[in-house]
Structures are given as C-alpha cells and as structure tokens.
C-alpha cells in the first residue's frame, strides 16, 4: 500500500462521516417537514429558504447549550454512552456498499470503506447488537428511574427483535450464496430483486428495523407520556445531540441495508441489465454515478417510509411488542427459511 491508497482511504472516511452527520441532521428536518405535511401544518420555514438551514441552526444550538450532568450520575458512562451510539453507527456505514468500484488511474475505487468484505453482513448484525450498549448505558448511568426504564425496555426490545432480523436475512443469504454485500447486489442486478423472492423476509426485516432503531410504533424506550424522554432524559447539549443523530444515522443505515439486501442495491432497473439499457460501459464512471444515485434514492425512499409509519401508527403496548416479536415474527422467519430451502431444493438451484 503506497501513500495514494492511504490518502484515498482517509478521504473516503472523511466523506462518509461528514455525509452521514449532515444526512442525519437533514433527516431531522425531513421528519419535521413530513410530520407537518401529514398533520396539515406548515412546519419549520423560518431559517433560510423553506427552512432549509434549520438543521444547522439546531446543531449550532445544541453545541452552545450547557452540558448538564446529574450529580448522582456515573459521569464516565454518562459520557461514554453517546460515543458508543455514534461509533456503532459509523462502523456500519463503513461496510454499506454505497457504490460500485470504478477504475480511475489504474486503481479500483468505490465509495465503500471496506468493499468486498467476506463477512460484511455479519459485521452489520454484530454492530446492531452492540448498539444496545449506548442506549442501555445512557439509561443506567443517568441514575434516573425513567432513564433506567427506557434503557431496560430498549435492551429487551433489541434482544427480542435481533433474532428475527438475523433469521430474516438468511433467506437472502441462501439465494445469494454469500455474506458479501457486493456479491448480494451482483446476484440481484442480473435478474429480479430479492424483494420478489423474499417478500415475507422483507416485511420482517422492515418491522425489526423499526424496532432496532427505536422508531414508532416501537419507540417504547422513549415513550414520552410514560417516561418523559426515556434513556436520554438526563442528557443535554451535544451529548443529547449525538444520541439523537445516532438514531437518525441508524435509520439511514437500516434503509441502506434494506436497499442492498432486498431492493437490488445500486441496480437501477429491475429484471434487466442496466448497462445495456442505458447504453453505458459496465463499470464506467457515468454508470457508477447513476447507480450510486439509485442506491441513495432507494435508501431515502425507505427513510420516508420510516417517517411515514411514525406519523401514522400509534405506539404498541409492551405486551403487544413482545407477542409480535416472539410469537409472530420469530416463527414466521423460521418458516421463511424452511420454505426458501425447500423451494431451492426443488428447483435444484
């Protein structure tokens, strides 16, 4: 590895982290705008044209706010929890295949930090399961009963839904025959997207992704009528900002993973080969840029679905949440694996 490779890696890291934080800040604005639209209000429209600079104003405000740590809190873990949350989110972004590799000056360059990773899917699952420490520690270290309840609820919820999430992916892995995300996308770009083969797995993954990111209707860890603010009740300033941004960053990451696994990743047109339809060279810069745009577009569409669901559905009760996770989603995902295996055996694929 010479210094140019090293510089490319550093540049990609810088682009990804900054794009992620700006995207998360703008998703907060999108959430408020779409909520306003659904509720027939106007929404934020004061800062900049159509309120577009609202995100910067929000983040700037959080920077300037006083950082209050409760006297009885465990200050070390209180400071560690937001760091864990945002670090886990960033790690997942390193694995997501944002774009295909394109040859520039004799080097294959893609926007992914770790392209062609053999165990990429396992890394994503591992990181989502580690993400629970951020929430659990935030709840515990605040030394506040509402925070603790929020942290406990979140841990229980994430442990329960992780299983179904992992099992729902197995069908896709069986079809692709690989845990490598780039291979999974290549398997879909020639034929039909996985959502046509695995519709049940897609729905299970969508529901579990909502639960893993603590989004409504699974936002019991921060149910404001019962728990004030849940695990981040005792947070203020940029620590609160980091927890908040991590939540939105995770939402975009889940959407990108869903786009990769089920919606063909960077494939533009389902059932057909992009390169021949558009008349572009496979692996050429214009095609890769178009495909990157398609990938981001699919991810943002799924983010819109997340927001849409939040402002349409009421929150689950705790027993309903557990019943749905253990008695419906888990058996359904197991049945999905059995059916997928049987069909693949019969079709002799």
């Amino acid at each position: 590895m010479d210094w140019i490779d090293f510089a490319i890696i550093v540049a990609k890291g810088g682009i990804l982290v900054n794009a992620m934080l700006i995207a998360a800040a703008y998703m907060v604005l999108a959430e408020r705008k779409i909520a306003a639209w659904i509720q027939n209000r106007i929404g934020p429209n004061r800062v900049g044209p159509w309120g577009l600079f609202q995100s910067f104003a929000d983040v700037f405000k959080l920077y300037l706010k006083e950082d209050v740590v409760p006297a009885a809190a465990d200050y070390r873990f209180h400071a560690l929890a937001p760091v864990i949350s945002i670090a886990v989110a960033i790690t997942v972004y390193a694995v997501i295949p944002w774009s295909d590799a394109v040859e520039i000056g004799g080097r294959m360059i893609s926007l992914t930090m770790a392209p062609d990773m053999n165990v990429a899917l396992l890394v994503i699952l591992a990181m989502t399961s580690v993400g629970v420490y951020g929430v659990a520690l935030a709840g515990w270290s605040s030394n506040n009963k509402y925070s603790l309840m929020g942290g406990l609820r979140s841990s229980a919820q994430m442990i329960s839904y992780e299983l179904s999430m992992g099992l729902s992916i197995i069908g896709v892995v069986m079809i692709a025959g690989s845990l490598n995300l780039v291979d999974i996308i290549r398997g879909q770009s020639a034929g039909a997207w996985n959502v046509f083969y695995q519709p049940i797995a897609f729905i299970i993954f969508l529901v579990t992704a909502l639960a893993e990111t603590n989004r409504a209707p699974f936002d019991l860890p921060e149910a404001e009528p019962e728990l004030v603010g849940g695990y981040h009740t005792e947070y203020s300033g940029m620590k609160f900002g980091l927890l908040y941004l991590a939540e939105y960053a995770n939402m975009l990451a889940s959407s990108a993973i869903m786009a990769t696994l089920f919606l063909g990743g960077w494939d533009i047109i389902p059932f057909l080969d992009d390169a021949t339809i558009l008349g572009l060279e496979p692996g050429s810069l214009p095609l890769v840029l178009l495909q990157h745009g398609a990938f981001v577009g699919k991810s943002l569409l799924l983010v819109f679905v997340f927001i849409w669901i939040r402002w349409s559905l009421p929150r689950f009760r705790y027993d309903q949440l557990m019943n749905l996770g253990w008695k419906i989603l888990l058996p359904l995902s197991l049945a999905n694996i059995a059916v997928t295996g049987t069909v693949m055996l019969l079709l002799n694929r």
């Binding site: 399961s129 420490y133 659990a136 709840g139 603790l148 406990l152 841990s155 229980a156 994430m158 442990i159």
Partner: peptide, 8 residues
C-alpha cells in the same frame, strides 16, 4: 448485553 441487562 444480557449480563448488563440483569445487572441493571
């Protein structure tokens, strides 16, 4: 996570 959960 289970260990931390039980401790909490």
């Amino acid at each position: 996570v289970l260990v931390v959960f039980v401790i909490m």
